[in-house]
Design a protein around this nucleic acid. Sequence first.
DNA 1: CATGAATGAGGATTCATTCAT
DNA 2: CATGAATGAATCCTCATTCAT
Lengths: 202, 202, 202, 202
Amino acid sequence: MKDLNKRSKIIAAATKVFAKKGFFTARISDIAKEAKVADGTIYLYFNNKYDILISVFEEEIGKIIDQIKKILATETDPKKMLEMYVTRHLQTMKKNRNLAEVIQIELRQTNKLIKEYRNTKFIEYTDMMADIVRLGQSQGLFRTDIEPDIAKRFFFGALDEVSRIWNTSAEGRYSVEEIAGQLLQIILTGISAPNGRLAGQP
Amino acid sequence: MKDLNKRSKIIAAATKVFAKKGFFTARISDIAKEAKVADGTIYLYFNNKYDILISVFEEEIGKIIDQIKKILATETDPKKMLEMYVTRHLQTMKKNRNLAEVIQIELRQTNKLIKEYRNTKFIEYTDMMADIVRLGQSQGLFRTDIEPDIAKRFFFGALDEVSRIWNTSAEGRYSVEEIAGQLLQIILTGISAPNGRLAGQP
Amino acid sequence: MKDLNKRSKIIAAATKVFAKKGFFTARISDIAKEAKVADGTIYLYFNNKYDILISVFEEEIGKIIDQIKKILATETDPKKMLEMYVTRHLQTMKKNRNLAEVIQIELRQTNKLIKEYRNTKFIEYTDMMADIVRLGQSQGLFRTDIEPDIAKRFFFGALDEVSRIWNTSAEGRYSVEEIAGQLLQIILTGISAPNGRLAGQP
Amino acid sequence: MKDLNKRSKIIAAATKVFAKKGFFTARISDIAKEAKVADGTIYLYFNNKYDILISVFEEEIGKIIDQIKKILATETDPKKMLEMYVTRHLQTMKKNRNLAEVIQIELRQTNKLIKEYRNTKFIEYTDMMADIVRLGQSQGLFRTDIEPDIAKRFFFGALDEVSRIWNTSAEGRYSVEEIAGQLLQIILTGISAPNGRLAGQP
DNA sequence: CATGAATGAGGATTCATTCAT
DNA sequence: CATGAATGAATCCTCATTCAT
């Protein structure tokens, strides 16, 4: 029960399989085959199928949280911070398309399965955005008539849905930079204090 | 007439059950019980379980499309149109919380199940938003550096995620008006042409 | 869920299969095949595998209890009653060899599986014997230095083990009458009050 | 030497675990944990799970046989011999409650698993009782109308079932002496030649 | 000899779907 | 049209056994 490498292999395989088939239609044997281990081996590392899903989710979200935290630590301008957050999120999702899918599944399905599961990692992740908004508001850069807890959902929803572009064949032509740029245009302009300067505009 | 009535009862029951338990954990017998018909009766009106999901989705989205089309027909100002769209969407979802859930499930899961299913109703629905954006751009009211096909996803994602507020106990304190108002602030400000006037501002 | 006939068929099949293979090595599909129903049908009548075992047990023991109660009602002499009990038990087990096996399995295994299951039927069955012993004691026919609750176990154990004769090929040559006769010799002589007359002896 | 020690540890652990959980619900890992060895180690000393059960059984029954043989060698009176047998059996079962359980399991289950297994040890054990009966009959002390091969089953069944008293919480109040005494009353009285003297009676 | 991670066959159970009534 | 008992394919998970270290 100590082979971390094997655990990672299973997580990676599960991410791929869940993304491709969805949580419910994915079979344990699919994951096992993808990870090149026996079915039973999976249960040496995870309690059950749901546990795999949650683990995939938490592990991956955890990584993003760590990355973004590190990046944000180097910056003090809320606008730049928002930019970094958005860009990083989209980059990660583009790089790991399956992850975007798994997040979607997780957020919309697991709560039906395991009522007691409180998705603290996800809350932590979106709360980072709410904090940036609050910071900007306190500095007079962002409108104060925007509720940070609504904004965070708004922004996350937008990011999440936009990420689906890379997974559905349609509209796959846009690059991360394009999309991030456009999203930021709208977000930053939309959230800036009325008399503040718009990002990228003199 | 009797048939249509029974079909509607099943659709309503399915919406409720899918919303509560999710598509996969919902059982046909749950829907049958909710609709007060026998399990077998359901198969007189639908081909299979997926067919019910798609029917629920298309029927409900169809209604919204019709409603919004009617409303939009009375208006020519793209900003007002966007406002109407957003408000109407949120109102509908607030009124019928289950619907919001089913939409979420449908969009993220069905495509895994039935590859051949092209969700034309949904595309039609979001394309209406893209059209409004295009209209605004042609009138010089909206920024032209925003790609309408990205904007529609961005806006829909934001609306969809925000709708989850009413289904998760957390943050249930916000009213439709508040949320719609804040969303519109960001959207309209964000999308307006730089020298255009902000909505609600002289 | 009302076809009592089908339920009986499954009970009969289960009795046979459990007797032949033992509870744990018996597969649900074996029972289904034996009963000529689909595997799933079994779950329309029973909650799970253990439930089948318990049902078989209680149903069959219940029948014996009813039979013996009826017989005992016609008799007042405790010695004759004991004779009837013993003979009836052995006859039933001889006729339905599988039942003897299932009782053995049930008594020695189920309590490991379902702690909360109180085998009231079985207790009722053996308590009938304790009651006969008490009756005989009160009439001065049976020794009073014998504890009825120990005697009932003693007698049941003897009957039960002796029943195995018909299921193991060895010693299959003895008839019910022979065995019942010998058992009764020992039991009645053993339990009679020292100065009472032995059964069948002047 | 070291090997034998480890083998004994496993036997002891298995006895405990089988008694507690039953053969089928017991896991090899349970036994390994109880014996404080690795799962794989068990397979250095036993061929498979059944082999453990049989070994436990034969080893323990073997010990009892040896003990009883030794005791019986000192005695010539069949009545006393029967008394010794019964008392010794109950004492052993009381001291090692788990053993009583394992015997019950073994006798009722293993024959379903391994058809080819002839339980010679057990036969040897009960045949000792048949031999005592025969001896008593030849000396005119025991009734000759009792078949020794039926009597041995009868007596063993009674002993075995009575032993369950210590394992089920109910009726745990009886001591070995009490139970052995009562059993012997019945057995000896029941088996004595009609004009012979009853045990413990002048 | 000892370990325990890995294996993979096996089986109880569920539930969408059918069809005789 | 409506019913709901019956079907049986499908799958998660367990655990005895193996074998590389």
